[in-house]
């Protein structure tokens, strides 16, 4: 009798304990999803701020075992422009407005049309498919508060990224590409920054607009990547691929020479793989692992010759 009376008490205690655990679990899951949601929101804000904020500053670019200092100026709105100039190493500067991009080096000036894309690489709906997004921590960069957003690659087709984003104005204060062993492959970080809050606008007036493609990609793309834009110049095609965060450019072009050759080059974390078979050449450039670039170049060159 007494045992029967004790049973409900024990059950109640067990249920309370179970309820507490469930609530704790729900809390953890909730905070994780909120963290991911906040991080996606920060990434979205960063994407928008890149074309709307007026600022200038100096960034340090760590690559290939060296550091370079680069001065950047962004003025959005009507008559807006971007200006980037190296302060160390080989003098080189870039000026971009809605019409053209001008690259200056000692004794050499290069003019290219400024491309404006109808679609952007960042896609909040797809980024979670290829990366685990976490709002990891808070740090201070160039005197500004920064949320640290980690985009951890779900496979070895792409690199992981760590981004430092100012939560107030959405400005990207730094970005690092992280390799498979958590090593830093390349990093850009502001060391000084002046933000002009008065002069906000949108500088994306179309110049040489690159339209989203209506046809599918002519070659099997790396997992998670989609064709977001295509540009055709004569017989040469440039395909812009994105996995929601990283970008690859695939160039497909006929050549006058006949070769059977694979060439790979690297600058910082940017890999280039060129594969020519006969008269056709496929060149892949992107901040992706070498294997991803080479595999795609091989497949594309093969398709061009089929």
């Amino acid at each position: 009798m007494s045992r029967n009376r004790r049973m409900p008490v024990l059950l109640l205690a067990d249920m309370k304990s179970l309820l507490r655990r469930c609530l704790l679990l729900l809390g953890i899951v909730g905070s994780l999803s909120t963290s991911a949601g906040d991080a996606i929101g920060l990434l979205t804000a960063a994407q928008q701020a890149q074309s709307q904020q007026s600022f200038e500053g100096v960034v340090v670019f760590m690559h290939d075992g060296r550091f370079d200092a680069v001065r950047v100026v962004q003025r959005p709105g009507d008559g807006g422009y971007q200006q980037i100039a190296s302060l160390s190493g080989m003098p080189r500067a870039l000026f971009r407005d809605v019409r053209e991009t001008r690259i200056e080096a000692p004794g050499r000036a290069q003019r290219l049309p400024s491309l404006v894309f109808a679609a952007h690489a960042f896609d909040a709906r797809r980024v979670g498919d290829s990366y685990r997004i976490n709002d990891a921590a808070e740090e201070r960069i160039a005197g500004f508060n920064a949320r640290v957003v980690d985009a951890v690659a779900r496979d070895d087709v792409r690199h992981s990224q760590r981004l430092w984003i100012n939560p107030e104005n959405g400005l990207l204060l730094g970005v690092a590409l992280i390799g498979p062993h958590r090593e830093t492959l390349q990093q850009v970080m502001f060391t000084s920054l002046v933000v002009d809050a008065r002069n906000a606008g949108n500088s994306d007036a179309p110049a040489a607009e690159v339209l989203p493609p209506v046809d599918p990609a002519p070659v099997a793309l790396p997992a998670g990547f989609q064709l977001i834009a295509k540009r055709v110049e004569g017989a040469r095609r440039s395909l812009i691929l994105s996995d929601g965060l990283a970008m690859i450019t695939l160039y497909l072009e006929p050549r006058s020479d006949v070769l059977d050759r694979l060439t790979t080059l690297r600058r910082g974390a940017t890999q280039l793989a060129s594969r020519q078979i006969g008269h056709q050449r496929a060149v892949v450039v992107g901040e992706v692992p070498l294997t991803t670039a080479v595999d795609l170049a091989n497949r594309a060159a093969q398709v061009l010759n089929d």
Partner: peptide, 14 residues
Amino acid sequence: AGALGIVSYVPVVA
């Protein structure tokens, strides 16, 4: 077109 805006130009001039 990239997510990083002006920062993406930095490797071009470095």
